[in-house]
């Protein structure tokens, strides 16, 4: 299987990748994102979908050069050069890795917000998903339920 994310596999994750849908534990209320089969805190298996704000804080970052990029990202590197990837703690609790856009000098602790971008194209199918942009404090959509 390798690292190939098939089209059906990509489709199954669209609610999370584009709609930022996580799961809230029915037992301990902890939010998991990306969604998982059991609560990351208490391992409870009864979970309810929850929409996340996409707002969070940068906890770590790296800059991936052409030498470090998986080949799926070669087209992006050819056009835009290397890219930053960050580990973001979302305000609802969970942490997730995502590329950072429109940053030249990321700082651990800086607020970020999720945006929808192209991840890459394979089999002629564009894979869309969240990345993170600096959060300037503009008005944000209210947190859903």
């Amino acid at each position: 299987m390798g690292a190939h994310v098939s089209v059906p596999m990509y489709r199954r994750t669209l609610a999370a990748r584009v709609g930022l849908e996580g799961r809230r534990c029915d037992r301990c209320s902890a939010v998991s994102f990306p969604p998982r089969g059991a609560c990351g805190q208490c391992r409870g298996r009864s979970l309810t979908p929850v929409r996340l704000s996409g707002v969070g804080t940068l906890q770590a970052w790296t800059y991936i050069t052409a030498a470090g990029a998986p080949p799926e990202f070669a087209a992006q590197v050819r056009r835009d050069g290397g890219y930053h990837v960050g580990l973001v703690a979302l305000q609802e609790g969970p942490r997730v890795a995502g590329q950072l856009v429109d940053v030249s000098d990321p700082e651990i602790g800086q607020p970020v917000r999720a945006v929808v971008r192209r991840l890459y194209e394979e089999e002629g199918v564009v894979r869309y998903g969240f990345k993170f942009a600096p959060h300037m404090g503009e008005q944000l959509p209210a947190e859903g339920v």
Partner: peptide, 20 residues
């Protein structure tokens, strides 16, 4: 536009500026 932007991501970004 950046390499990871297209008309759909631009559209999503504009739509996101409107309160949910």
């Amino acid at each position: 536009a950046a390499a990871d932007e297209d008309a759909l991501t631009l559209a999503a970004a504009a739509a996101a500026t409107i309160d949910g």
